[in-house]
């Protein structure tokens, strides 16, 4: 049995059919990049994995069990923006992850327990390269640093799945390259299963071990909301990317887009 199984998943908002007939399975340790036109339902799909949205039909199984219907520690998330706490500095932002579970009533941990949490937090902050900014607040950090912080927070919980919704969309190209290196290292070291939505198809190829393309198969020009998107391409990639046929595949996908 697979790590994550998606059985005949459908999702609609009222009359708008967003996703239909999605059947996929993912093994532990895969890095799935997801691309597709804007508004085709990538975030919706990610939100269902997260537990924020529920499927209209079908189900998602994690290690054979139904996914919890609300966000929990098994699934970490990094959004494009706003996923760090503006009232806490870098260290506090990361430490709060364990304070949430260690201090169920007071929300604060003291003494030797606190020392342990701090050590753990410092290790993850170091892993994402934020040690020099330990005492800084999010508004004093650049966009890239804020995303690093959000990743460090998520890593504290050692989630089974890490979900990334256009995590590098707001960053400029140089910083993006650094972030790619970082996320690849973290993926390999922590043996994470990652789902990443991206608008940058190159980025998807470079990082992922697998690439999904979301697209509508059926079209009714008179009722554009009638049919939802499916995963039309499911490609296994050479880990590490950079293979010569990337360009061919990109060309093929672009061609496919144009033909519609």
């Amino acid at each position: 049995m697979s790590f994550l199984t998606i059985n005949n998943l459908w999702k609609s908002y009222g009359d708008v059919q967003v996703l239909e007939r999605i059947n996929l399975s993912v093994e532990q340790g895969e890095f799935v990049s997801m691309v597709g036109a804007s508004g085709c339902g990538k975030s919706t799909f990610l939100n269902m994995l997260l537990g924020k949205e529920q499927a209209t039909r079908g189900q998602i199984l994690l290690e054979g069990n139904m996914l919890k219907q609300e966000p929990d520690e098994e699934r970490g998330i990094v959004f494009q923006r706003y996923s760090v706490f503006p009232h806490l500095n870098v260290l506090q932002n990361v430490m709060i992850a364990d304070e949430f579970t260690e201090a169920k009533i007071l929300g604060w941990v003291l003494g030797s327990k606190r020392k342990l949490i701090k050590e753990k937090a410092l290790a993850f902050i170091d892993a994402v390269g934020l040690t020099p900014a330990l005492k800084k607040y999010p508004h004093e950090l650049s966009g890239g640093m804020q995303q690093r912080l959000a990743i460090a927070q998520a890593l504290m919980k050692a989630p089974k799945i890490l979900l990334l919704d256009e995590p590098f969309g707001a960053l400029d190209p140089g910083i993006r390259a650094d972030m790619h290196q970082l996320i690849r290292d973290i993926w390999k070291k922590n043996k994470l299963t990652i789902f990443m939505v991206t608008h940058d198809i190159k980025e998807g190829f470079e990082l992922g071990s697998r690439l999904w393309v979301f697209d509508k198969v059926r079209h009714d020009p008179h009722a554009p909301n009638m049919y939802g998107a499916r995963v039309t391409y499911d490609l296994a990639l050479n880990t590490g990317g950079q293979s010569a046929d990337i360009n061919n595949i990109v060309a093929e996908i672009n061609q496919h887009e144009k033909n519609k």
Partner: peptide, 22 residues
């Protein structure tokens, strides 16, 4: 931002802890 409240939940926070810490 909704993102913050969801993030807190993925870090294991209960409703109470979201209320007092976030």
């Amino acid at each position: 931002p909704r993102e913050q409240l969801i993030k807190a939940q993925t870090l294991g926070a209960s409703t109470w802890l979201v209320a007092i810490r976030v």
